[in-house]
Computed example of a mutant assay.
Amino acid sequence: MATIKDFSALKGLRKDLQAQEKARAEAEALRLRNEARAREEADIFRNSIGQVAPLRARAIDKAHHLPEPPLPIPRQHLADEQAALLESLSDEFTVDTLMDSDENLSFARPGVGQDVLSKLRRGHWVIQAQLDLHGYRRDQAREALGEFLRESRKRGIRCVRVIHGKGLGSVNKEPVLKHKVRSWLAQKDEVMAFCQARAADGGAGALVVLLRSSERASG
């Protein structure tokens, strides 16, 4: 037969169960309120920014880490060096073996008419480029002259001036470089003719050189 003590224990247990049930109900109500608030905030954010669409992935947006390509072979540079070797100028060459000269140091290759040389003396062609060899040693001057003629030829230039100086600062006042330049020019196939420059263009210290027309020249 149940005692008063047993009834008291049951009553206490019932109170505990009711308290737990109340706590669960309050927790559930709080969770529902939080979810509702979150939905409201999300709706406010979506309404403020409007409709959005995901960005399409494009190939251009992707970073491709490719290995570095090998350095290009300097084919043109090698070709120029080869041409320079083939066109090297000799100091043993004497201009007198190729052509005659006059007292004005004028020269023309065989087949070049005297009218061409006369026009060159009179300044018929405009001087388009010049090379000043003042202060150059002989080897430096030879290399500089060869490079200058090659570049002038590439650019389609017809008439150039080469300033070699009068040799007044040379040993024994002899114009060594002046004679060397004449010899070097005579060895270049692209040189049609050259003559001593007019007084206004350098006189005895320079030569005016006429080059053959190249494919890039207009005529």
Rank of each mutant, 00 (worst) to 15 (best):
G123V: 05
R33K: 15
P110I: 02
E190I: 12
F45S: 14
V52H: 07
Q130H: 12
E151F: 05
L85V: 13
M192V: 04
R137V: 01
A79I: 08
S218L: 11
I163M: 09
D80F: 11
Q130T: 02
L185N: 01
H164Y: 06
V116H: 06
R137S: 09
A204H: 04
D80L: 14
Q51D: 12
P54D: 08
K188M: 12
T94V: 12
R161C: 12
Q18C: 01
K5S: 12
D139E: 13
L17K: 12
I60S: 14
F45N: 11
V116P: 02
L10V: 11
E28S: 10
E174A: 11
V126P: 07
R122A: 15
V208P: 07
H179S: 04
D91Y: 10
Q18G: 02
A63H: 04
R158W: 04
L98D: 09
P70D: 07
M192I: 03
M192E: 12
R33Y: 01
R158S: 15
R75N: 05
E35P: 00
N104M: 06
G202H: 06
D6P: 00
W184I: 01
I4E: 10
Q187P: 05
V209A: 02
I73V: 15
S183R: 08
T94A: 13
F93R: 08
R46K: 15
G135S: 08
S101T: 07
A63V: 15
V208L: 06
A197K: 03
D115T: 11
A84M: 13
R212L: 07
Q196V: 00
D201Q: 15
I44G: 02
V112K: 07
A193W: 03
K188I: 09
V181F: 01
R153D: 03
F107K: 01
K154R: 15
S218K: 10
K5N: 08
L168R: 14
G50W: 05
Q187A: 07
R39G: 01
Q187V: 10
K154H: 09
G156Q: 10
K180R: 14
Q140F: 00
R161V: 09
Q187S: 10
G146E: 07
A83H: 09
E215Q: 10
R121F: 03
V160E: 02
L168Q: 11
F194A: 03
V112W: 03
K188N: 07
P69Q: 03
Q82W: 06
L89R: 04
L133C: 06
D102N: 15
G205Y: 05
G146L: 14
D6Y: 09
D189N: 13
R182W: 00
A199Y: 05
L10F: 07
R39L: 13
G169I: 03
S88P: 00
R122P: 00
P175V: 03
W125I: 01
C195M: 02
